[in-house]
């Protein structure tokens, strides 16, 4: 794996048992992601985007294939080592925001830093910085239920980026947002990608997301069928 490649997947397969037969959610997927890329995985529902994202995010395990992230064979890691790898290297943005309800926006952002053992003053200062970056300055003490969907997703982005992970994975981040907020979120993520150099892999079939991408990977029936640069 060359130095500029962050992620390399080879022959990834994932089967689900359904109706007496095995259905291939991922079928021999070979995939590379370069450092600093802003890549969108696209395709219809059921094409395997989220499954691939889950494999790459070490949330699920493939039935076959290899997966290296930052030069490490991540499939050889134990469950606790995977948890630690996610903590140190991967940031997540979920479709349904998935903020922790009992924590304020600021605390949600600081949560991963806290898991990493960072001191309170330091992590809260970083959280405040990221609140500013995502345009939520002054709203840090609000709980998720006191924020709009767009604001919650911005907090989720800030949470994913605050720990400066090597790889940011976003699963349909604009799906629950209107087009204005969706566009705004994608431009924010793209801007952060440009400025911070973090690698983004986004699963989305939103044209707004695809328009923002450096590279679009199209999936169909668990396979990568094309790679395009918009």
């Amino acid at each position: 794996m060359s130095d500029h490649v962050l992620l390399e997947a080879g022959g990834l397969c994932k089967y689900y048992h359904s109706g007496g037969s095995d259905v291939a959610a991922l079928d021999q997927v070979d995939f590379q992601l370069e450092k600093g890329a802003f890549t969108v995985l696209s395709g219809r529902s059921g094409s395997g985007k989220t499954t691939l994202l889950n494999m790459v995010g070490l949330l699920d395990t493939p039935d076959m294939g290899s997966l290296h992230i930052a030069g490490e064979n991540v499939l050889a890691l134990s469950l606790s080592e995977r948890a630690n790898f996610r903590l140190q290297r991967i940031g997540f943005v979920f479709q349904a925001y998935n903020l922790i309800r009992v924590l304020s926006a600021r605390e949600n952002i600081a949560y991963v830093l806290q898991l990493r053992g960072m001191k309170k003053t330091e992590r809260l200062a970083i959280a405040d910085h990221w609140l500013f970056e995502v345009g939520l300055d002054g709203l840090g003490n609000r709980r998720p239920d006191q924020l709009s969907g767009g604001q919650q997703q911005r907090v989720a982005v800030a949470r994913a980026l605050a720990s400066k992970p090597a790889l940011v994975l976003a699963d349909e981040p604009t799906a629950n947002l209107d087009s204005v907020h969706g566009e705004s979120l994608m431009s924010l993520m793209r801007d952060l990608n440009d400025r911070c150099g973090m690698t983004f892999l986004i699963a989305s079939h939103d044209p707004v997301a695809m328009a923002a991408a450096q590279q679009c990977v199209y999936m169909q029936d668990g396979r990568i069928v094309s790679v395009a640069t918009p």
Partner: peptide, 16 residues
Amino acid sequence: VREFGVMMALGCGRGV
């Protein structure tokens, strides 16, 4: 359950 899933995804250990 969902929140626990998110926390695990973010890197929180099962023991925690």
